[in-house]
Nucleic acid binder design. Structure first.
Length: 849
RNA sequence: GCCGGAAUGGCGGAACCGGUAGACGCAGCGGACUCAAAAUCCGCCGGUGGCAACACCAUGAGAGUUCGAGUCUCUCUUCCGGCACCA
């Protein structure tokens, strides 16, 4: 055995062993329980970042652990290869996105292999390959024929200088990122997927996902946003024509307090009013120019103007003014609301600002009136007042009565409203999956027939930031109508990349299948038993995948409904950032270049660059290029090896927490692996002697018991701690005896999912077996955990005052007696009555005086 | 703004069902080895008081429930994720 731990040699040899034996190839085997473990596939951005390393290490620990527990495991890997960054890189380097993407994939694949992940590379896929995106297109044409994919207008960010659509990310403070021009909103025709048709099912099924974190289910529930309410019609006359303004409200009980209505800038009433009133026109224009993003929209000052249109109240027939307001969204409900200033905070502020009437109609906890300023109690449901026939009714009675009266007049009914909107998938971009539609002057939008799929994306183009280059490529867009054969124009929009990632997990089950989207093998592997990825995907990606799975079920492709049985949402990887300040210009210094001096207590006293310039500590945050605080996994692997990188990432933090990077702690993980090696070396050279110590076995098996429990809970950081504790216990055993042999075998097996290379090497070196992955997972020995005596803590009034050792079988009386006999306990009990004695078996005694 | 989280020593974190707060590690301090350094090994390590035994304080802040609260309930503060075209 080598004296020193040489990670590079150990890792090379272990990876060679796995490759030779094809260790990670997965084959369907109905005789064994299957475990499909999947980490979210990466976007091939260039090189791996620490978030990837963390994600795939967590997945690998789960995969290898399950494998040793006898599961038939599948852990595949692929590439979410379409997307915006490739176009940006193409513009910067004048290289086609395809070449950039394929080069990145090749490099990152090498990095993943170097980390020793147990991946079945025969199943590798890239979403930018025609054999993958063909099935996006195939499914789209089916949804289109069913009406689940349809065309309507959608709002986009428009850069008027570059004449191009911008992603939200490309809008910086309301301006285009390249041109600096104020971004405009624009409505363009797009294709939508009717996810709202599945809203009810997507919501209800959340209650049957016990393997998902509650917080994710709650976020999805709120996102889907089911609310029960009443659709209310306010009749009005426009150009001598009778019309109805429809609104949705969850507070129909407050209808008698409605004093005006407000509509979105895009609402027909606003359009009408802007034609006859230049002020309204200017305001509508202003609203349309405003931000398209909800987060920004919600922050803008609430403003409005009267449209001059009046509607009549459906119960009282009172004339109410209609305002156009920037806080009403066209995308939600009817694009119009009834305003009840007395019982809605936003309406209240709007009414105060513009002097509109405020009419209280609900008795709230603070009384019957609603004096300024606004108080949250005003919005609480209560008994109706000033409401004519509805006076005295409570919330539900009033809603029911008002809904019934409205139904009688054909001016409303109860309605369920969803916050969820249909999914707009058209992107005016080159590097994506072409939407398989042909626009024919006589036949309209015609889906491309199966025989002509895939519609291949030309891979040689270089975008220039001014629109989609496909729209300037006649070879691509000039085509014939599949229905009538006349000249027609091919759609040049591509699909949202979320389409690609909504079903890739099913495709991993069916490598090589070119005759169908998925085949029978998907029925064996699906659903994914364990899915792992960042919490930032809690809503969109996970909801779209759940939607797609149902769509695929309804196409008869799969039986499974929920794609992911268990979900683990990992935290982000953070690092400190530092900068030097030269005349107000910040230069960001990579933490690796910063030297920190500490005071006697270990607190940071000062920090400077290696060449002595003082730096400012800017706190801890996500690793980013802009703050130059990324830690390159490759440098880490080269310095310490993959096992140290993996161990550190697992040890530093539980998977769901954020992980704050620390170079010193990495050093500590490396030290631990060196100690494991040193111990194995000492063990291999020691002579057999003595018997197993009872105490050592107790320690090791107690730690193992806890570690197995922690593995179940996915609390892997304490499993790494457990390995350290076992090594500490082993080092206390003199020489080599049955306890050290057993303990070392447990240690290596416990470590093997986390640090597979060193575990593999030592397992063979010390002749525990041929392949540690074929070994069984260690279980604690009940006999080793037996104890004759236990230590109990003694409290007086809940405060710790001492401890006693009692025989395991001691009864209450004996325990009480021993506790009272403890001198320090006596000090606190002396002269007082013991009112109550609480005995928690195996833990403590509490004397209440 | 709305939705969802998080907060424990100098730092990362542990504490299973409400039952010894600080496991394990990092940093720091002291020592051994060394000509010296690195590496390695041993010891100490929340705060205040005390020679010590020990006592008091302490889990973001404030209240509450309980024999007993880091853990449960309420209010607040700060930070983080998402908000539909970043992935």
């Amino acid at each position: 055995m080598q004296d020193a731990y040489d990670p590079a040699a150990v890792e090379r040899e272990a990876q060679h062993f796995w490759r030779e034996r094809n260790s990670f190839r997965s084959i369907e085997d109905p005789a064994r329980p299957k475990f499909y473990c999947l980490s979210m596939f990466p976007y091939p951005s260039g090189k791996l970042h620490m978030g990837h390393v963390r994600n795939y290490t967590i997945g690998d620990v789960l995969t290898r652990h399950h494998r040793m527990r006898g599961f038939n495991v599948l852990q595949p890997m692929g590439w979410d290869a379409f997307g915006l960054p490739a176009e940006n890189a193409a513009m910067a380097n004048k290289v086609p996105p395809a070449k950039w993407t394929y080069d990145n994939i090749a490099y990152m694949k090498g990095q993943l292999q170097g980390l020793g992940f147990a991946l079945d590379w025969e199943r590798e896929l890239a979403t930018c390959r025609p054999d993958y995106y063909k099935w996006n297109q195939w499914l789209f044409t089916r949804l289109f024929r069913k009406g689940l994919a349809y065309k309507k207008t959608g709002v986009v960010n428009w850069d008027p200088v570059d004449q191009t659509v911008l992603a939200n990310e490309q809008v910086i403070e309301g301006r285009g990122w390249r041109t600096g021009a104020p971004v405009e909103k624009r409505e363009i025709p797009m294709y939508f997927l009717r996810i709202t048709a599945y809203a009810e099912e997507l919501l209800a099924a959340l209650d049957h996902l016990p393997g998902w974190p509650e917080q994710v289910k709650l976020m999805q529930k709120n996102w889907i946003g089911r609310s029960e309410g009443v659709r209310v019609g306010f009749p009005y006359e426009l150009n001598k024509e009778q019309r109805t303004l429809w609104v949705f409200t969850t507070r129909a009980d407050t209808l008698m307090g409605a004093t005006f209505c407000a509509v979105a800038a895009e609402h027909p009433i606003a359009t009408f009013a802007s034609r006859r009133d230049p002020k309204v026109q200017a305001f509508v224009e202003e609203c349309k120019r405003g931000p398209a993003m909800e987060a920004e929209l919600a922050q803008v000052e609430k403003k409005g103007l009267p449209t001059g249109v009046f509607v009549s109240h459906p119960i009282t027939h009172e004339k109410l003014p209609v305002w156009v307001a920037n806080y009403v969204l066209m995308g939600y409900g009817e694009g119009a609301v009834m305003a009840v200033p007395a019982h809605d905070e936003r309406d209240y502020e709007f009414a105060l600002k513009y002097g509109l009437p405020i009419r209280p109609v609900i008795r709230h906890p603070l009384g019957d009136s609603v004096p300024a300023p606004w108080k949250p109690e005003y919005a609480e449901p209560g008994v109706c007042i000033n409401s004519g026939p509805y006076d005295g009714m409570d919330y539900q009675t009033a809603v029911d009565a008002i809904a019934a009266d409205l139904t009688d007049k054909s001016l409303g009914e109860k309605q369920v409203q969803w916050r969820l909107r249909d999914w707009g998938i058209s992107r005016q971009r080159y590097w994506g999956c072409p939407v398989p539609i042909v626009h024919c002057p006589s036949c309209g939008d015609v889906p491309v027939p199966d025989a002509e799929l895939p519609v291949k994306l030309p891979e040689h183009l270089v975008p220039d930031g001014t629109g989609n280059p496909l729209a300037r490529l006649p070879e691509f867009y000039e085509t014939k109508c599949p229905a009538c054969g006349k000249a027609a124009r091919r759609e040049t929009d591509t699909m949202d990349t979320f389409v690609d990632s909504s079903w890739y997990f099913a495709r991993f089950c069916c490598p090589g299948q070119d005759g169908a989207m998925v085949d029978a093998r998907a029925k064996y592997w699906m659903p994914v038993d364990q899915y792992i990825g960042g919490i930032e995907h809690a809503i969109l990606h996970l909801l779209y995948s759940r939607f797609f799975q149902r769509v695929m079920r309804d196409e008869g492709l799969l039986d499974v409904v929920e794609p992911f049985t268990n979900l683990l949402t990992q935290g982000m990887v953070l690092a400190e950032s530092y900068y030097t300040d030269a005349n107000g210009r910040r230069e960001w210094i990579n933490p690796a270049e910063v030297e920190v001096t500490r005071d006697a207590k270990g607190k940071i006293a000062s920090a400077r660059t290696r060449d002595g310039r003082p730096v400012v500590y800017d706190g801890i945050g996500t690793m980013s290029k802009s703050k130059n605080n990324g830690v390159d996994p490759q440098a880490l692997i080269e310095k310490y090896g993959a096992d140290t990188a993996r161990f550190y990432i697992i040890f530093a933090s539980p998977p769901t927490n954020t992980l704050e990077w620390s170079d010193e702690s990495v050093e500590g993980s490396f030290r631990f692996l060196k100690r494991v090696w040193a111990y194995a070396l000492k063990y291999s050279q020691a002579a057999h002697q003595g018997e197993a110590s009872r105490q050592a076995r107790f320690e090791i098996h107690s730690v193992l018991k806890q570690a197995n429990y922690d593995l179940q809970k996915h609390q892997f950081n304490t499993v790494a701690s457990a390995a350290m504790k076992i090594l500490n216990a082993l080092e206390k055993i003199p020489g080599r005896n049955p306890a050290s042999e057993e303990g070392l075998s447990i240690l290596l097996r416990l470590l093997s999912p986390i640090t597979p290379h060193i575990a593999h090497h030592l397992w063979r070196e010390l002749q525990f077996g041929d392949d540690i992955m074929a070994a069984s997972w260690p279980e604690p020995d009940a006999a080793a955990l037996e104890q004759d005596e236990v230590e109990l803590v003694v409290q007086v009034n809940g405060k710790l005052r001492g401890s006693i050792r009692v025989p395991k079988a001691a009864d209450r009386g004996a325990i009480e007696g021993l506790a009272l006999a403890n001198p320090n306990v006596q000090k606190f009990v002396a002269g007082q009555n013991v009112k109550k004695v609480v005995v928690v078996p195996g833990r403590l005694v509490n004397l209440v005086v």
